[in-house]
């Protein structure tokens, strides 16, 4: 999010305040909430959304509008996070089909969940919807509400793995960057100074042990921790990696839960 954008807080004040209070009252019941913003800003947006949600059977909903910023807030009581996500993608598809040139941006979360439904948080969610640079549906997480997330650099040539890891780690609140090969990874480590490098051993450019060596010889203040996630299962390779200061070694196929645990361990 660009930091230099000022937000017109005054007008939207009332809406978020009310919303915050309402959600606090029903704080023990599950409620999904999503913020929807369309840069095309058509006046029919609200009615389209209402029609669509009405056709979705057996679902309660409520649509509120922030008139000053043209952002819609949609409440879905009783829905879990994944159900809310699913509804969001159905809604996005519907809008893309029925509205011309629509480019809907959605940020969603669920209360109670990772964050508290304070007006500040709600405002932040709405802002992130408007300022979002990617058209992907975005899940708002706790660590976004705090500052100083940990930095992880993900290095792997395989798009599938990179995408999955980025999604997961972002959801846990880490700040992530991706690198496709050894040489660009080394450049990024030097420039961006991540706290942890999650890398495959089989890369283009430079890989394996020489790559690990180079990481440790880079002129950065704190050498990042290294977690290796690879298909290589040869004993010798594993022991050589550990001898060279790698913090953890996970073989593919891997259990995402286990990987999370190992990464979190590195951060403490």
């Amino acid at each position: 999010m660009p930091e230099s954008v000022t937000l017109q807080r005054e007008k939207g004040e009332g809406l978020y305040q009310n919303l915050g209070e309402r959600l606090k009252e029903t704080s023990r019941e599950l409620c999904g909430i999503m913020f929807l913003y369309c840069s095309a800003g058509s006046p029919q947006l609200e009615s389209l959304v209402r029609d669509f949600l009405q056709h979705e059977s057996g679902m309660e909903f409520e649509v509120l509008k922030d008139a000053s910023t043209q952002t819609l807030a949609i409440l879905l009581p009783g829905l879990t996070l994944d159900a809310t996500h699913y509804q969001a993608l159905l809604l996005k598809q519907h809008l893309q089909e029925t509205m011309e040139g629509a480019d809907p941006r959605i940020t969603l979360t669920v209360f109670p969940g990772q964050v508290d439904p304070t007006p500040g948080v709600l405002r932040q969610m709405a802002e992130s919807t408007r300022l979002s640079t990617s058209s992907d549906i975005h899940i708002f997480t706790k660590e976004e509400a705090i500052q100083e997330p940990g930095r992880i650099l993900i290095v792997d040539n395989d798009d599938t793995i990179r995408e999955f890891l980025t999604i997961r780690l972002k959801m846990q609140g880490f700040e992530t960057l991706e690198a496709l090969d050894g040489t660009s990874a080394l450049e990024l480590i030097e420039k961006w100074e991540p706290d942890l490098v999650l890398t495959e051993l089989n890369l283009y450019g430079i890989d394996g042990l020489p790559f690990i060596h180079q990481i440790q010889q880079l002129p950065v203040e704190n050498t990042p921790k290294i977690v290796v996630l690879t298909e290589q299962r040869v004993e010798r390779t594993i022991s050589q990696c550990f001898q060279n200061g790698v913090d953890d070694y996970v073989t593919k196929p891997f259990s995402p839960v286990e990987l999370d645990a190992r990464i979190h361990r590195c951060f403490h």
């Binding site: 089989n202 450019g205 430079i206 890989d207 394996g208 290589q232 040869v234 010798r236 390779t237």
Partner: peptide, 11 residues
């Protein structure tokens, strides 16, 4: 040599 050192092969 860099190309050969980055082959996808165990040993």
């Amino acid at each position: 040599v860099y190309c050969l050192m980055t082959l996808n092969y165990p040993t």
